[in-house]
Amino acid sequence: MTAMLELADLTKHYRTKHGVVRAVESVSLRVEPRTTMALVGESGCGKTTIAKMILQLEQPTSGAIRFEGQDIATMDRAALRAYRRQVMAVFQDPYSSLNPRLRVGTIIAEPVLAHERKSRAELAKIVAEVLDVVGMPANAARLYPHEFSGGQRQRIAIARALALRPRLMVLDEPVSALDVSIRAQILNLLADIQTEFGLTYLIISHDLALVEHFSSDVAVVYLGSLSEAGPTEQVFATPQHPYTQALLAAVPLPDPDHVLSEAAAMGEIASAMNPPPGCRFHPRCPHAMDICRTTPPVLTGAPHAAACYLPPHALRDAC
């Protein structure tokens, strides 16, 4: 089966005054149709940069992004237009992602107008439909973003992304700016529209409980590289990379008697400008061996893969 989205050795280096920031380093991933892939990982590990490359807001330094098997870098104009209408994004901040000077109806209609010729009546119908999908009244179209709460604004942002009936949605921290009770509404809404429209999601979140609840697959990113990937259930039940183990141990539970693991807090974050040689996690890893300090481990295993020399991979690779 062709993947909905495939990243192949995707790399992004930013040049700055002080040197090169290796934001994304050779990331390869497959996202199957109608599944939800979650990207998790430390702040600054390159998650948003990956999203931006998929959305063509940044140009990859090297590597490829394939949409249904086709490399977006070699697409002709017509194919690119088709790509851009099938891939939509919802960003973290419902406050700044909506243009404050435009009415909600105009905001939602904008991407449609960019791609299709539609009469006013047809546009109004689309706007009313998607507002209904996200549980907002049709008269919301006449109001301005500031007249809505954060949760409502995020619904509007989702409605806008839905207006063109996309197939892939990139959700970069879609609920982290929202209140807990509203979060549940938005997550339930996203799950419903995924089923209804057969959508594929790539979601970025730092909330591991949310990721466990919401995604079918998960990729753990550390300093621009994948450290572990696989079906969510397997990765959460039997994390194989020490970084994933540390992440799971660090989740603060809503329980005052839960003691946060000290191990989870260890280590300085390495800089993406100066990533350590070998395994990028080795300076923080309690199990680091000599080889970890010199030679980068390769992501191995399927469907549950980890980039680590520790068994079972070390054993399997030795054979």
Binding site: V180, S181, I182, R183, A184, Q185, L187, N188, A191, D207, L208, A209, L210, E212, H213, F214, F236, L248, V251, L253, P254
Partner: peptide, 19 residues
């Protein structure tokens, strides 16, 4: 309701209880 609305690590996947 607030405490019931959060996904919990390791809990069974059910629909979240939204308010």
């Amino acid at each position: 309701a607030l405490l019931a609305a959060i996904p919990r690590l390791g809990a069974k996947r059910t629909r979240l209880v939204a308010i």
